[in-house]
Each structure stands twice: as structure tokens, then as C-alpha cells.
């Protein structure tokens, strides 16, 4: 009898350590304590049994659960991009928000989104603040070290805006992250024929374009649709948007979070199959 109990305790202790989810491990530890309190009672130590029952089963489990409730957060940092992930009248909205909210519910974490601008995002990569990066992210959008890309949930275009009247050689604004080979991977066009200038942010490129210092710039379709509204109206009339390549919108997960990446990929695959994502996309991109 006693040996059976101790073997059960051994099995439970191994089971606690093999759990993936912390909550399950904590509950199993409560069962472990309860069973050990039974053993104390059997071997003639009722004082120890009562104390272990009150502390080990009730209180330890309780304070673990209270401490756990804080750890279970999915920290996402994001760029604000309308339609994808944005704030409207103090409320978060966007297609990525719905995906993230659904995903965080599925893995039982609280969602916490923090908006930063593009430059800050670059400096935060691999840092401690975020588990995930969202906000119309596509592979190549940020320097790739410290990040792993998830599956894509939506296909967009890489577009170039330029003056339609312009002939011959153009001076095109490009984000600094595209400086290396990334741009040639994304585009079908040969960019060597352009005279490219590199910028740190989209805002800077729009300003330069408005002031006529560059003849055009490259951005993905999600960002281009909002950038268009910020170009001066006479200039907008003359501008023309050309599709030059494809981008695949997805999320970036901090490298080292392999488990999260796997869960996210499974979730995205599953909801793409069930048509959930298509419904969401048709709501936001008519």
C-alpha cells in the first residue's frame, strides 16, 4: 500500500516536470501534495498531514496560480497601419487584431499590443519587450536577424509610386532595410536601372516626395494606400502606382520562441483552411 503510494508520487513528480503548460504542472503539483498528505496520514503523522494539506494543497497552488496569471501575456509590438492594426477613437481595430485576439485566446494568453514607430521597431528587434511583431509585417520588411517569420495570411503587392509624366532615369526612395538583396527578391523588376535613395521611414519618403526631391518611392500596398492620402493633391493627380512585386503579410516571432512560432503557424494554417481569415480579409479589404 505504502509502496504503491510512493510509486504514484514518483510518477506524479515526473509528470509535473514533463508538462508543457505551467498551469497543468501547478495543478499536478497540488495533486502531488494531496497524495503526500495521505501518505503522512497513513504512516501515523496526522499533524504533518493536516499542515501539508492546508499549505501544500491550498496555499501553494493558489499563489502559483496568482503569480501565473501575470506571466500569461503575449506581448506584441506593432507599427500602426490602417486596415491591418490601428487605433480609432482610442479603440484598437484591424484585421491583425482579430487574428491575434483569436490566436491568444486559443493559447490562453492575454494579448498586449504596444504601438511603436518604424525606427523604434528596428531597434527593438531581439529585445526583451516583445514576443511578436505585427502591423503589416512581411519578410524583408525588417532586418531579419533575431526574428523568424510566420506563415503568411495575406498576399499583397509591392508598389511603386512615381510621376506618370517622368521619362528616363528616376530617383526612387526605398526603405533602408531594402538596401541589401531583399528588394531584388521581392521584385520582378531590375532595380539597378533606378537611382535609389535610402530612407529610414515612410514619413520621410512622403515628405521628400511632396517637396519634389525624389521622383517616387516604393512601399507595400497596405502602407501605400494610406500614404496616398498624405501626398499633396495636385501631385497625387499626376502620380501613378505601379505594381513591381509581391509581398506576403505575416507576423514575426522573436527567435528563441520556437514553440510560439509553431503554435502560430498551426493556427494560421488551420484558420486559413476553415476560411476564417478570408472572411476577416473581405471585411477589411473590400
Amino acid at each position: 500500500m505504502l509502496i504503491l503510494f510512493t510509486f504514484l508520487l514518483l510518477g506524479l513528480s515526473v509528470a509535473v516536470l514533463l508538462q508543457d503548460r505551467l498551469l497543468n504542472a501547478v495543478i499536478l503539483l497540488g495533486v502531488f501534495s494531496l497524495l503526500s498528505s495521505v501518505v503522512y496520514f497513513v504512516v501515523g503523522a496526522p499533524d504533518v498531514a493536516v499542515t501539508e494539506g492546508a499549505i501544500g494543497v491550498a496555499f501553494v497552488t493558489f499563489i502559483y496560480v496568482l503569480a501565473l496569471s501575470d506571466q500569461g501575456k503575449l506581448h506584441v509590438i506593432a507599427e500602426e497601419v490602417p486596415s491591418f492594426l490601428f487605433q480609432e477613437k482610442g479603440e484598437l481595430r484591424g484585421v491583425e487584431l482579430e487574428i491575434l485576439r483569436d490566436f491568444s485566446e486559443e493559447i490562453d494568453l492575454d494579448l498586449e499590443i504596444e504601438f511603436v514607430d518604424h525606427q523604434e521597431l528596428t531597434s527593438l528587434i531581439g529585445g526583451r519587450r516583445a514576443d511578436m511583431i505585427a502591423g503589416a509585417y512581411f519578410p524583408g520588411h525588417l532586418p531579419s536577424d533575431g526574428l523568424s517569420d510566420s506563415r503568411s495570411y495575406h498576399q499583397g503587392q509591392l508598389t511603386k509610386i512615381h510621376l506618370s509624366s517622368q521619362e528616363g532615369e528616376e530617383e526612387i526612395g526605398v526603405l533602408r532595410e531594402f538596401e541589401s538583396e531583399e528588394l531584388t527578391e521581392l521584385t520582378e523588376e531590375d532595380f539597378a536601372s533606378f537611382d535609389s535613395t535610402y530612407f529610414n521611414s515612410l514619413d520621410e519618403m512622403i515628405r521628400e516626395y511632396n517637396e519634389g526631391r525624389i521622383d517616387g518611392f516604393v512601399a507595400d500596398s497596405g502602407r501605400m494606400s494610406t500614404a496616398l492620402y498624405r501626398i499633396n493633391s495636385p501631385l497625387r493627380e499626376e502620380s501613378e502606382i505601379v505594381t513591381i512585386g509581391k509581398v506576403e503579410y505575416g507576423f514575426a516571432v522573436s527567435s528563441g520562441e520556437e514553440e510560439l512560432l509553431e503554435q502560430l503557424n498551426d493556427y494560421l494554417l488551420e484558420s486559413a483552411r476553415s476560411g476564417k481569415i478570408d472572411d476577416l480579409l473581405s471585411d477589411y479589404f473590400r
Binding site: D47, A49, V50, T51, G53, A54, I55, A58, F59, F62
Partner: peptide, 17 residues
């Protein structure tokens, strides 16, 4: 009997919980 101050105090704490 069995029990004691340790268990008693903790059970009082459970009431507060």
C-alpha cells in the same frame, strides 16, 4: 490532538482567502 498552531493559522488564512 492532531492539527496544531501551524495548520490552525494557515486555515485561518484560508478563511481570509
Amino acid at each position: 490532538g492532531p492539527g496544531g498552531g501551524f495548520a490552525g493559522g494557515v486555515i485561518g488564512g484560508t478563511g481570509i482567502l
